[in-house]
Design a protein around this nucleic acid. Structure first.
Lengths: 332, 332
DNA sequence: CTGTTAGCGCTTTCAG
DNA sequence: CTGAAAGCGCTAACAG
């Protein structure tokens, strides 16, 4: 594969000059430019960006470490991050932490070994014990995305409490008094905040909290199926359910369908997270949509800001979620 | 950030020795190993794999360029490729060609600039004019995945013709005589093969081909909606539909629901591609499942084989698809 | 068992 | 407007 030296030889100029025409880093006589470009063409030269990164001590890339890449919400976040990064000539390297602290550490290390300029991380429960301290020791610029974990770091995520409360209130207004929650993984700030929102919503509606109606959905589909089945079977059962994220919503639907319960007639169902097919299911799902695009863009913005001023004081940004009113709540 | 030189100094050994204990590339006295490991610990050393790649002339990474990363089928392929790659200490860099020849070329170039050791590419229509010739000129090892395009390259994909024929025959056995096809993007080998399978299935069932029943679904949801609507409205309309891929199946369902047509009673629907939620829709979808896992693993295998013997003769591998019988075909 | 040394391909002073 | 040369962090002969 052709190198700059090959091009230089072919164009009868120094490597320095080739470098400068490739990067536009200093004025070069236009005839020379032409000769160099021709030589590049002729040799089929393709820059080696590893070598460039080594010499420049910057890879112009950022790492993005998330848990559960197959989650469509995260897909939107990835797309947004890549879009925003591309606008600033940054490449994105993504890795899946699987929300496991050890795997998270491995992924984060892999990214740092690749010398990403900074890192966007959705901290797993346990990040504070493994990945975060390691990153701090390496002095790698980090911004936390989607979930919050450490005020000493820049962080950005959706508002969780208020929108969840709103979901509950909506159900209460429809006359429901036994409203269950399929809650996410304990240890995630998002879970805690959404549970808080659930309690808040009940309180606002003048409803008491029945701890038996808070099911452990584990942030994923299978556990949510079990939790939903349990919630549909308690004494004086629930007539409405709030699900804590998209995967659990799917699980809840599956569990309800399996027991012959129809949504919304037998059980109203609303959830956190919108997803592409939420409007395709029957009935169409009423949900709270996280601002995935804004979150991704904001995260990149925060990282860039920190990159060019490492001593900036850390910010925590909350972005508002959107209530998407469809039919699964029981409204016509 | 600590370098090998820092570690060497801290451990009072040469850089060479540090390199060898880090990589296990030659025997080192165990006391020395201990000293070096301690120094690594102490300095917080993290290897710079860019520098390593530059020195070794190998990045131990492969590029994976696909069209439409949000497609769940491709998600499975990606997971399989990463899994198989990881087993051989290879990292995967993925890029989205959006099935656009220009974007495809850009992505492929970006990957080569990163000096991936080889490339897995799902060729867009038009790859033969842009990306493929460029790659050939660069002499980058390439294996084509999912779609076929050039016998001079290694290629691997699903069997398309026979499974599609099987879908059609199944519908015919159920008594359908007006069977429509929502076909994919022209120019893709997968599309052509599935259309061929459709014709073959009709022939085997003793049914004539009515060209009016072949709709242009464009391989994506929106076009498939339009095509489906049209197929449901032709004179002597179809009573059963075969969809050419997962996205188009979604579009077909949407279009049918919008016109109040129930599956399978008013219109039977079967499709190519299984996807996570195919069993969640009502009715559950009867589909042909591509062997995404095997395809991904095989692609990595072919690339590795070529990497260590560039003069190997190119192989084209067809992997069998699986018929997943559920309810949308109208069977009880 | 360990160290010296010459690169890998590129950027970037410094000098002209 | 152009070039020589030092060096980014690491690997791998080669020599001992």
């Amino acid at each position: 594969m052709a190198t700059m030296a090959d091009v230089a030889r072919a164009a009868q100029v120094s490597i320095t000059t080739v470098s400068h025409v490739v990067n536009g880093t200093r004025p070069v006589h236009e005839d020379t430019v032409r000769r160099v470009r021709a030589a590049i063409e002729r040799t089929g030269y393709t820059p080696n960006i590893l070598a460039r990164a080594l010499a420049r001590a910057s890879t112009q890339s950022v790492g993005l470490a998330l848990g559960g890449l197959s989650n469509p919400y995260l897909g939107d976040v990835i797309a947004a991050v890549e879009h925003e990064a591309a606008r600033h000539d940054l490449t994105v390297l993504v890795g899946d932490t699987r929300d496991d602290p050890e795997q998270e550490l491995r992924i984060v290390q892999a990214l740092v070994r690749r010398r990403v300029d900074g890192l966007l991380l959705s901290p797993s429960p346990g990040a504070a014990e493994r990945a975060l301290p390691w990153l701090a020791a390496q002095r790698v610029p980090v911004v936390l995305i989607d979930r919050f974990a450490d005020p000493r770091l820049d962080q950005v995520g959706s508002d969780n409490e208020e929108p969840t409360a709103r979901l509950v209130e909506h159900l209460a207004e429809l006359g429901h008094t036994r409203i269950g929650l399929v809650a996410g993984l304990p240890g995630l700030t998002t879970t805690a905040e959404r549970v808080r929102g659930y309690r808040l919503g009940l309180a606002r509606a003048g409803l008491a909290v029945d701890e038996a109606l808070i099911g452990a959905g584990g942030s994923e589909r299978a556990a949510a199926e079990r939790a939903t089945a349990a919630l549909a079977a308690v004494a004086d059962p629930t007539t409405a359910l709030v699900s804590g994220n998209n995967l659990m919503t799917i699980g809840a639907m599956r569990a309800l369908a399996d027991r012959g319960l129809r949504v919304p007639d037998d059980m109203a169902l609303v959830g956190f997270d919108d997803f592409e097919w939420a409007g395709l299911f029957e009935p169409r799902l009423t949900v709270v949509a996280q601002p995935a695009g804004e979150i991704g863009a904001c995260a990149v913005g925060l990282l860039r800001a920190r990159l060019d001023d490492p001593s900036r004081t850390p910010q925590a940004v909350r972005l508002p979620a959107r209530f998407v009113h469809r039919a699964s709540c029981g409204c016509r």
